[in-house]
Computed example of a mutant assay.
Amino acid sequence: MTLEIELRGARVRYGPLEALHGVRLPVPAGALTVLIGRNGSGRTTALRALAGTVPLCAGRVLWRGADVTGLHAHERARRGMCFVPDLRAVYDTLTVAENLGLAAPDGDFARALDGYPALRPLLARRAGTLSGGEQRMLAVSRALLSPARVLLLDEPAQGLSPAVAARTYELLRALDAAVVVAEQRLPPGLGNGRTPVLVHELRRGSVAFSGESAELAAE
């Protein structure tokens, strides 16, 4: 298994509180990795540590073996990272088409619109006027259009119907990139594909389980 990116001994503090306690989190290349855990478990913090939006107080971030701990989020983005946060993931004052254009300057939105046909009639609408589910589809579309090598998504299926949520994970698994998502629980049906899904369960800032989705289901 070739690692694309990894947290190694990562510690993150918010003031006097430590949110991650020496976490090791390997992310294989070209596969889907799921971080699960209850609110407060550290899953979102781990995702942000990979993205560079929160600093480490100890440990390292390794990307293809290179230490990128000191790189800011925008520098990691230039190297091929795309981060879709759980909140404020779209530009409210821009239209749907303008939001998509930030990820695909050539104007080729086919992958996004084929994945989410409901966005097609909304291209001229301002993103801030969309429903929560429509905004989520738009935010995930940024990842679908991105040429990034590492895609980080916090609760990509939030606010989506079960059918659209399942479709979202089909689209993410089909990408030729290291995809990391954070969810409260393992999305249904992820263990049915040919490619194994790696799962890390976090509890109170530490990794309680690491393995394939089938192993977690067996537990």
Rank of each mutant, 00 (worst) to 15 (best):
M1P: 07
E4I: 00
R8Y: 03
G9W: 06
R11Y: 15
R13A: 05
Y14L: 08
G15I: 05
L17D: 13
L17P: 04
E18S: 06
A19W: 01
A19G: 07
H21A: 10
V27T: 01
A29W: 04
T33H: 14
T33A: 04
V34C: 00
V34Y: 02
L35I: 05
L35E: 04
N39Y: 08
L47F: 14
R48S: 14
R48T: 12
V54K: 08
L56I: 05
C57R: 13
C57G: 06
R60A: 11
R60T: 08
V61K: 05
R64D: 02
H74D: 15
R76C: 09
R78T: 04
R78S: 09
G80Y: 11
C82S: 08
C82R: 15
P85Y: 14
N99W: 14
L100A: 11
G101L: 10
D106W: 09
D106I: 05
F109C: 05
A110L: 09
R111H: 12
A112N: 07
Y116W: 15
R120E: 00
R125K: 10
R126G: 06
L130S: 03
S131Y: 04
S131H: 02
G133M: 12
R136W: 13
S146F: 04
P147H: 13
P147W: 10
A148C: 05
A148E: 03
R149Y: 12
D154Q: 12
P156R: 03
A157I: 03
A163G: 09
A163L: 13
Y169D: 05
R173F: 03
D176A: 15
D176G: 14
A177Q: 03
A178T: 01
V181D: 00
E183N: 07
E183H: 04
R185N: 06
L186P: 10
P188W: 12
P188H: 11
G189Y: 06
G191E: 09
L198T: 13
E201T: 03
A208S: 14
F209K: 08
S210G: 09
G211K: 10
E212W: 15
L216C: 07
